[in-house]
């Protein structure tokens, strides 16, 4: 196996251009090292850990820019994230063990493109954008078109994730990440749901609701039909119920050892309901009528 330790994005990109599908990018290594041991060794390992400028959390205007090499633990312990993006903090707090959080990077979680990736539904709901570096220039890709299937992103084999930009959610909004797993944070999510609600200024109607579903489709998805049902309406328990059922219908889970498709749809419904109730109460101080 060949091994490279590029010191710039352009050096990494030329290695990817040269080695194509043979090349495997490694950052934290928590997934790649396991693949090397139990699946197959790539022809060439490109360790991007030493590329400068990819390890910072920075505020820029109304958004936060996170470098792909920032670890999950660094996000979890960042005051800026805790204050400005509590939804992302919550997902990182429920992300495996401390040992893994100290090692795994947000870029790895994104590029791995696992439907159950802990940060993905929250990033979708926050309207995050990915900065992708290619040899012919940089491209900005919204998260809702970044994921193309399990393990597949629009980076393909030639691109490198350069940064993640996350706009601050609207004032007065409230978000929550709800994970259903047998062994809590240590386990892969059976279902993970991110909900963000934006009430109007009088706290009467929902200006906007965003619902992200993890582990219940080939990619993390937004429940756009459920979101449309909620937009501009006063939130009552009947509407919550309808939206929760719609979110379940929008999911397309598989049956595996962690749960059947039918079970997962039930959990989507239950967590969407709970997420809407919790965020509405957190944002408005009122229970859902």
């Amino acid at each position: 196996m060949d091994y490279f330790k590029p010191e710039s994005v352009s050096e990494a990109l030329s290695l990817l251009a040269k080695y194509g599908n043979e090349a495997k990018i490694i950052a934290g290594g928590t997934d790649v090292m396991v693949d090397i041991k139990y699946k197959e060794e790539p022809g060439c390992l490109v360790n991007i850990k030493r590329i400068p400028g990819m390890s910072a959390i920075e505020e820029s205007g109304g958004s936060l820019r996170i470098g792909p090499l920032v670890t999950i633990r660094e996000i979890e312990t960042s005051k800026l994230v805790r204050e400005r993006l509590p939804l992302l903090w919550e997902a990182c707090h429920q992300f495996a063990s401390l040992q893994i959080r100290n090692t795994a990077t947000i870029g790895g979680n994104i590029c791995r493109a696992s439907p159950s990736g802990e940060t993905l539904a929250p990033l979708l709901v926050l309207g995050a954008k990915a900065k992708l570096a290619f040899s012919d220039g940089e491209k900005t890709e919204p998260f809702n078109s970044l994921f193309q299937g399990p393990g597949k992103t629009s980076l393909g084999s030639k691109g490198l994730l350069a940064a993640i930009e996350i706009p601050y959610p609207p004032k007065g909004s409230s978000g929550v990440y709800l994970k259903h797993a047998v062994r809590g944070p240590m386990d892969i999510a059976v279902v993970g749901i991110a909900v963000l609600v934006v009430p109007d200024s009088a706290a009467k109607t929902l200006q906007e609701a965003r619902i992200g579903l993890g582990a219940v489709a080939p990619t993390p998805i937004r429940a756009i039909k459920a979101e449309a049902m909620l937009r501009g309406k006063p939130l009552d328990s009947k509407l919550v119920e309808q939206a929760a059922q719609m979110a379940a219908a929008e999911s397309s889970p598989i049956t595996d050892q962690r749960g059947s498709a039918e079970y997962r749809r039930w959990i989507v419904e239950a967590l969407t309901r709970r997420g809407l109730e919790q965020t509405w109460k957190a944002a408005t101080g009122k229970e859902v009528a």
Binding site: Y3, K5, I26, G28, G29, T30, M33, V34, K37, Y38, N47, K49, R73, S97, L98, Q99, I100, N102, T103, M186
Partner: peptide, 27 residues
């Protein structure tokens, strides 16, 4: 476990606990 799940291989890496089975020696 050799997959980063059980913690038996925990060491301090620059002061932080990590699962040494999923950290490349190169790092």
């Amino acid at each position: 476990c050799n997959t980063g799940e059980c913690g038996a291989c925990t060491v301090l890496f620059n002061g932080k606990p990590v699962n040494s089975c999923v950290v490349p020696a190169a790092d």
